[in-house]
């Protein structure tokens, strides 16, 4: 049994109180510079110790299978339903306090796991679904996914001809109880949203852009930097949805150009200028839409 004392420590550079509790063990076998592993560690810190974890096939089985939490693995299309069933099962045997947390990569969220996720959201089953989106099937070795962005190289498509699926809009379209995007480069915002989600009952969905040095072809030390550029370039906007409404948009002050983000990764190295211009236009268009639909606009410190 793990005891979470609830103790926190101030991290000055993040401007936040970081929980001391660690449910993830050191020595797991995720790649060096793995953005997903950073996000999973943050989530588990925020969730405390009264948690059960569900995970399908995906990169994060390696950290999670040796976590200190009760957990089980399910097949790739099924884990949202595994999580829903676990929560219902806990409730019918009289446990109404344990939080159920389903992790999944982009494949288990955007593609093969979408039906089960959609069913759970529609029933408003009470659990947290956390998608670490590394924009390709990284655990099987970089194959195209519906979350792969326009123009990206993968092992089976040399330059993806269609844009990324807007999973958040799909969640909003189902009037989801709570959904938020988070970034590993903004830990204060990340922790605030997870902590807020713990006070809400119903399906709660999170999306993190999980920078992947192995699949995106960049230097592992740039992971957090890339995540920050993604937010600052408006490519990975941070926002919250409640009951289908876009309630808040978090805006960073400094704008990095989308092309800086693209040029830092070899998976975009083949792009021609006009393609980069097109991607830039798409990002601007999505950003303007977000500004239009968001009820509140909040400022991020950096």
């Amino acid at each position: 049994m793990i005891i979470d004392t609830g103790e926190t420590r101030r991290v000055v550079s993040f401007d936040c109180e970081m929980p001391v509790n660690e449910s993830l063990r050191p020595g797991h076998t995720a790649c060096a510079g793995c953005g997903a592993a950073i996000s999973v560690r943050m989530v588990l810190k925020a969730m405390g110790s009264d948690v059960a974890v569900i995970m399908p096939s995906g990169c994060m089985i390696f950290p999670l299978m040796i976590s200190k939490l009760p957990s089980f693995m399910g097949p790739l299309p099924a884990h949202a339903s595994f999580a829903a069933g676990l929560k219902h099962g806990l409730e019918v045997i009289g446990n109404d306090h344990t939080e159920v947390l389903a992790f999944s990569g982009d494949g288990g969220t955007f593609d093969i796991g979408l039906q089960a996720l959609s069913g759970a959201v529609e029933r408003d089953d009470d659990f947290i679904f956390f998608c670490y989106d590394n924009e390709a099937y990284m655990n099987t070795g970089i194959q195209r996914c519906s979350s792969t962005p326009l123009g990206a190289w993968t092992g089976n498509v040399l330059s993806k001809p269609t844009p990324k699926k807007d999973i958040m809009a799909m969640m909003a379209g189902q009037s989801i109880t709570y959904a938020a995007t988070v970034s590993i480069a903004y830990p204060a915002d990340f922790l605030r949203k997870l902590t807020k989600a713990r006070t809400i009952k119903g399906t709660r969905f999170f999306h993190v852009l999980a920078c992947c040095p192995t699949g995106w072809r960049y230097d592992p030390e740039l992971t957090v930097e890339l995540a920050r550029w993604a937010v600052q370039s408006r490519l990975d906007p941070l926002y919250e949805i409640e009951h289908g409404e876009y309630v808040a948009l978090q805006v960073s002050p400094k704008k990095v150009d989308v092309s800086d983000y693209l040029k830092a990764q070899k998976r975009f190295a083949h792009l021609r200028n006009e393609e980069i211009v097109q991607i830039n236009e798409n990002v601007d268009h999505a950003w303007e839409r977000l500004l239009r639909v968001s009820a509140n606009v909040e400022s991020l410190p950096y």
Partner: peptide, 17 residues
């Protein structure tokens, strides 16, 4: 459930509890 695949998944989850 929204499908039989999810029916069995829900049963597995609940039985594990």
């Amino acid at each position: 459930a929204e499908s039989e695949h999810s029916v069995m998944s829900i049963l597995i989850g609940a039985s594990r509890a």
